[in-house]
């Protein structure tokens, strides 16, 4: 059992093991997403206030959840790479940033599209939207810092420090944005509470949420594998891989 985890620290083994898991994860992700989407779009009941427009929730809520969790994955990988200097953790952290940024952007975009018919406006300075925007900025900062360094080892460690700083700050940012919002008391807009959602809408949402988590895992693994091959391009196993040799 332990040797399995130790093996994951080696780029070559990680490449092989992830290659074995990838088909399962991706097929499950796609089937969950297909079931959840068809259920949500065609069979879930219409919302009595928002009509059919609420159905974008089946994309919006999962992307927002994954975007937030993705930051913690990135920061955890960063911590591991700083403390134990693990090559793999560095690759994971580097791969988390663009995918997380894309998820955050999707959440903001789908939120804007949802907001137009529901609130009559594309953008509101609501607490959650603002925090998501700040989260996007944090992701973009990590990417910008990584690209600024020519030495990619130093870049990875600098980004690890930055993502840890961000992780300490995220709860503070969230709470303060919450407080700022309640101080401002904007006119009439209320987000529907997620806990009051009816089970006929919650069940397809759970499917798409699980599907998006697995989709995130798939995208992350693909990115990690590409990054691994790029970084290890001068090693024998990558050369064998490129020549089509199996071992």
């Amino acid at each position: 059992m332990w040797s399995f985890f130790h093996k994951l620290g080696s780029p070559r083994w990680f490449y092989q093991i992830s290659g074995r898991f990838l088909p399962w994860i991706s097929v499950t992700a796609v089937s969950l997403l297909v079931v959840g989407t068809i259920w949500g779009l065609a069979f879930a009941p219409e919302d009595f206030k928002q009509g059919n427009s609420y159905r974008i929730m089946f994309v919006h809520v999962p992307t927002a959840m994954v975007a937030l969790v993705g930051y913690y994955v990135m920061a955890a990988a960063g911590a591991v790479s700083l403390i134990w200097r693990m090559k793999m953790a560095d690759v994971v952290m580097r791969s988390c940033a663009p995918i997380g940024a894309a998820m955050t952007f999707l959440a903001l975009l789908s939120g804007a599209i949802w907001g137009k018919p529901t609130w009559g406006t594309w953008w509101v300075w609501d607490a959650r939207i603002t925090s998501m925007l700040v989260l996007l900025f944090l992701y973009l900062g990590v990417i910008a810092l990584y690209e600024a360094y020519d030495n990619k080892v130093a870049a990875g460690r600098a980004c690890a420090v930055l993502s840890l700083v961000g992780m300490v700050n995220i709860p503070i940012i969230y709470k303060s944005v919450d407080w700022w919002y309640s101080l401002h008391q904007p006119a009439s807009i209320k987000l529907t509470e997620e806990s009051t959602i009816h089970s006929s809408m919650l069940q397809p949402l759970l499917f798409t949420a699980a599907g998006f988590y697995l989709f995130y895992a798939t995208a992350l693994l693909l990115y990690i594998r590409a990054e691994l091959v790029f970084r290890e391009q001068n090693t024998r196993w990558v050369r064998d891989l490129a020549l089509g040799k199996r071992d």
């Binding site: 700040v134 900025f137 944090l138 973009l140 900062g141 910008a144 810092l145 600024a148 360094y149 130093a154 600098a158 420090v161 930055l162 700083v165 961000g166 700050n169 503070i172 940012i173 709470k175 303060s176 944005v177 407080w179 700022w180």
Partner: peptide
Amino acid sequence: GLTVGLARGGMLVSLLILPLYVPVLIF
């Protein structure tokens, strides 16, 4: 500290740190 080794830091420092300034600005 994170950008001192880079040739040009100015704009990058702002990009990294401004999101962290949000709580200070609010209060």
